[in-house]
Amino acid sequence: MRILIIEDDMNLREELKILLDDSGYDGIILPSFENTKEHILKINPDLLLLDIKLPNINGQVLLKEIRKESDMAVIMLTSKNTEVDEVLSMTYGADDYITKPYNPVLLLLRIEALFKRMKKTSENLSYKDVKVNLLKSTLESRDKELLLSKNEISIFYYLLMHKGKIITRDDIINYLWGNDRFIDDNTLTVNINRLRKKLEEINLKGVIETRREQGYILI
């Protein structure tokens, strides 16, 4: 699970990354606070740890803007300990809220609990009467269970989470492999074509459309 850290305290964010990496997560630090929302949406982490007090922008306002485009999991981090901040954070769409200084064990427990809730939710995913089982990496129709590869289920899930919206090739590549690795552009094409062929086996033909010079869309 990739966890993006948005924290202006350099020492604290470094400590957070070490804590997350040592606990089996992939901690990612966003060092710059220019075009913050765009960077967050491009990285598209499994979880966002978002500080309320940031340079040039309020974390709660940033959260409100993110929620217009993404339902990624968000835990707010703040040194403020008031009910107003907690209520505002939850109203704007935070999944959880924790005050600083926090107990590292408590933070890890909150993260684990949030991911468990997300897994339960994912078990109820469906598309056109086809059940999407992320844990088993399958698509289940009434009369067939279709087994997908890790990349295939990831691509389908990512498109499903943005159903009806055009997703660029770069966004999908970054979601699958991260933006710090060189991936041959043809690799994504191969995975998309394999996924399309498999979807035809459960009568989902033509549901992933290519939009020239834009990307892909799940209709």
Rank of each mutant, 00 (worst) to 15 (best):
L19R: 00
L54A: 02
L147N: 12
L49N: 00
G206R: 00
V130P: 10
V207G: 00
G178K: 06
N58Y: 06
M161R: 05
L114D: 02
Y157W: 09
K116A: 08
E152G: 06
T121F: 09
I219F: 10
K205W: 02
F182S: 07
E83Q: 14
K64S: 08
L49W: 00
D95A: 05
F156L: 06
L49S: 01
I29K: 08
I172G: 07
L30I: 09
I183R: 06
R194H: 13
S154R: 12
L62K: 08
L160R: 04
L47H: 01
P31M: 07
V132H: 03
N133G: 09
S23W: 00
D96S: 14
I52W: 02
S122A: 09
V61R: 11
D185W: 08
E86V: 05
I98C: 02
L204K: 03
K37Q: 12
S141K: 01
E145G: 08
P101H: 05
K144C: 14
Q214M: 09
D71H: 10
D171G: 07
M1G: 11
W177T: 08
R169S: 13
G164Q: 03
D85G: 00
L204A: 01
K17R: 15
I18L: 15
Q214K: 11
N179G: 15
D185R: 10
M118V: 07
I219E: 13
R211K: 14
K144F: 14
L204R: 02
N81F: 04
D85R: 02
D21H: 02
Q214C: 05
K163R: 12
E65V: 08
K100H: 04
R13T: 14
T210G: 10
T91D: 14
Y102I: 03
N174C: 06
K205D: 12
Y102E: 03
L88D: 13
I52H: 00
G27D: 03
N81I: 04
G93E: 04
K150I: 15
N124C: 13
I202V: 13
K131E: 13
I219D: 07
R196G: 11
S23R: 00
I6N: 04
D170Y: 13
I5N: 03
N151D: 12
K163D: 09
V207E: 07
T99M: 03
V74M: 05
S23Y: 02
V207C: 02
N179K: 08
D22C: 07
L49A: 01
N35C: 11
P31L: 06
D26F: 12
S23H: 00
E83F: 15
E140A: 06
G93Q: 06
I166D: 07
Y97P: 00
I52C: 03
A73D: 14
M118D: 13
